[in-house]
Amino acid sequence: MLVDSHCHLDFPDFQSRLPEVLSAAAAAGVGRMVTISTHVARYETYRSLAEAHTSVFCTVGTHPHNAALEPDVPAERIVDLSRHPRCVAIGEAGLDYHYDKSPRDVQQRVFRTHIEAAREAGLPLVVHARNADEDMIRILSDEMGRGRFDAVLHCFSSGEKLAQVGVELGLYVSFSGILTFRNSEEIRRIAASVPHHRLLVETDAPYLAPVPHRGKTNEPAFVAHTARVLAEVIGASPEAVAELTTANFYRLFSKAAAADAENGRALAS
C-alpha cells in the first residue's frame, strides 16, 4: 500500500468527481490519503471528507498564504479541533516568501502558533516552506529548543541545508511530483541523502502532477509515479519504497495508525 501524505481533496478540481478520484487511488494501490487544511475556518469541510471516507484523514491549520486572513486563531482552538478522531496532524503552516500573500511577520507568528498547537496536541506539524530557508531553519531550531514536536517538511523543494537541519531536528521530509521533473536533479540528490526512515511521498494534489502526467490535474493515484522515481533514487524496488514510506507515515502520523488499528478491530469483531 502507498499513502498520499498530502493532498487537497476539498479543492474545486475534485468537487464533481471525488468518487472517481478515490476509486482511481485505490486501483493504484494508494490506500490512505491526508486531505490538508489551508483555513481553520474550513475545518468542517476537511473533517466531513475524512468522516465520509475511511481512506481519508484530515488536518487542521492555516496555510501561510492565508495567515493574514486568520492571524489570531489561538493554539487552544487548533488543539480543540484536532481532537476529532480523523484529524491526524496540525497544518499546513509555515512560510512562503515566493508569493508573499501574507506579511512575513504575520506568517512567522502564525507558524509559531501552529508549532505550539502541535506540541500541545502531540500531533505532527505539516510544514510548508518556500523561498524561506533561513527563517525556516531559525524558527524550527528555536522552537525545537523550547520543546520537542514532530513535523514533516512537505513537498520538499528547498535547499540542502534545510533538509539537513530538518533531519537533525528529527523531522521527516516528503517528496512530491517535483521529484520526477527533468530539471530536479538537486531535489533527487537531496532525496538520496535523507535517511530512509524519514522519507514520505505525496502529491500536493491538485498541483504538481508527476511525469508522465505533468501539466494535468494531479490526484492521489499519481503518487505511485513519485514513489517509483524515489525507488530509483535510493536504489530500492517500488514495492520496498511503498512499504517503507507507509511505515514511515504511520510512525509519524501515529493517530492514523491507531485509527486504522481500531477500525481493523471493529471490522474483525
Rank of each mutant, 00 (worst) to 15 (best):
Leu95Val: 05
Leu95Thr: 04
Asp96Pro: 02
Tyr97Pro: 04
His98Cys: 10
Asp100Tyr: 01
Ser102Pro: 04
Arg104Ile: 01
Asp105Phe: 02
Val106Met: 07
Val106Cys: 11
Gln108Asp: 03
Phe111Lys: 05
Thr113Ser: 12
Thr113Gln: 11
Thr113Asn: 02
His114Lys: 08
His114Gly: 12
Ile115Ser: 09
Ile115Arg: 03
Arg119Pro: 12
Glu120Ile: 01
Pro124Arg: 04
Pro124Lys: 04
Leu125Thr: 08
Val126Arg: 01
Val126Met: 13
Val127Leu: 15
Ala129Ile: 15
Ala129Gln: 13
Arg130His: 03
Arg130Trp: 01
Arg130Thr: 00
Arg130Asn: 03
Asn131Gly: 00
Asn131Val: 07
Asn131Ala: 14
Asp133Tyr: 08
Asp133Thr: 06
Asp133Gln: 06
Glu134Lys: 14
Glu134Cys: 03
Asp135Phe: 09
Met136His: 06
Met136Arg: 03
Met136Phe: 08
Ile137Val: 14
Arg138Gly: 09
Leu140Ile: 04
Leu140His: 07
Ser141Cys: 12
Ser141Glu: 15
Ser141Val: 14
Ser141Ala: 15
Asp142Lys: 13
Glu143Cys: 08
Glu143Arg: 05
Met144Val: 06
Met144Gly: 03
Met144Glu: 14
Gly145Gln: 09
Gly145Phe: 10
Arg146Glu: 12
Gly147His: 10
Gly147Glu: 11
Arg148Lys: 14
Phe149Asp: 14
